[in-house]
Design a protein around this nucleic acid. Structure first.
Length: 280
DNA sequence: AGCCAGGTGACCG
DNA sequence: CGGTCACATGGC
């Protein structure tokens, strides 16, 4: 199954810090990644600048991945606008990260993942999440995965009953309690993530922030990557650095109303590149 | 060896 | 409101 799109680069997406279970496969120096989401295992190969091969059937692609990779949204419009705009930093950022797209991840996975993400670096977040999937996620096998089982991200029901000490031993640190409480809120129906998709971005953020361990930044991440509120604009240490050093704290995201989250993603990916961070 | 990481909550004035 | 501090732990 092939996808042609000039704004679809799997290595850039995998290194963009929005998802933590998309990994480079590093075999025969091909640009190849794998991924587990929505109960499936998928392999992707970047054949050239505008062609990606997916290991799934056409049916599965239309059922799951077309939506997951937000392939009906016109990212070239955003990139073109930024490249032809006045902002020199965003010009270069959009040029550099033009293959990035905002994924539509599973809401619960995004919620827990970004609770874990606080005050951790990306490799540490990834290994922590893998541990949680290994211990609490359902095992599946597929032809594409060569009969080695892969692990789904755990259901809220399972995580909600996890032992705190066991969670702690998976390097969650002080976030163990946050994870348990979030999972329990979902199980009890106090937090309905699906519901928040159809609410406004502001309401989604406000609702998420009521949970312990979710502040402004994490709420923006969950909204952006898990609920696809693309006006979200998470400000972490990297974005803060860019806003200070590049813009002297005068950046106005209001110019990008309705899609600031995409702009944020180009900024994040580019500032980290400028600072010499190796792709993770 | 020490600083940093896709931060947050508690506490202070 | 805005500043400071502890928090648990791996990466580099």
């Amino acid at each position: 199954m092939f996808v042609h799109n000039e704004n679809f680069n799997i290595m850039q997406i995998a290194a963009s810090g929005q998802c933590f279970r998309m990994n480079r496969m590093n075999e025969s120096k091909k640009q190849k990644c794998n991924l587990v989401a929505y109960g499936r295992y998928l392999e992707l190969t970047q054949l050239d600048a505008e062609t990606v091969e997916l290991s799934c059937s056409e049916e599965e692609f239309h059922q799951i991945w077309e939506e997951y990779f937000d392939l009906s949204y016109d990212y070239s419009k955003v990139v073109t606008e930024l490249i032809s705009g006045e902002d020199e930093f965003l010009k270069k950022a959009a040029e550099y990260g033009r293959g990035i797209r905002i994924l539509k991840q599973e809401p619960f996975e995004a919620a827990i993942s970004f609770i874990i993400s606080q005050n951790k670096n990306i490799p540490a977040i990834k290994s922590c999440i893998e541990g949680i999937c290994r211990c609490y996620g359902e095992d599946k096998i597929s032809r594409e995965c060569g009969n080695t089982p892969f692990h789904l991200f755990p259901k809220a029901e399972v995580l909600a009953r996890a032992d705190k000490e066991a969670l702690r031993s998976l390097n969650t640190g002080y976030r163990d309690e946050y994870i348990l409480q979030a999972a329990r809120s979902v199980v009890l129906g106090d937090l309905n993530l699906e519901d928040l998709k159809s609410k406004s971005f502001e309401e989604a953020v406000d609702t998420l922030k009521k949970l312990r361990g979710i502040g402004e930044k994490v709420a923006n991440c969950i909204s952006l990557y898990g609920l696809h509120h693309i006006e979200g604009f998470p400000i972490d240490v990297w974005i803060l650095r860019a806003l200070k050093e590049v813009y002297n704290n005068r950046f106005d995201k209001g110019k990008y109303q309705g899609y600031a989250g995409i702009v944020q993603q180009y900024m994040f990916y580019y500032i980290r590149y400028l600072k010499g961070i190796k792709e993770s």
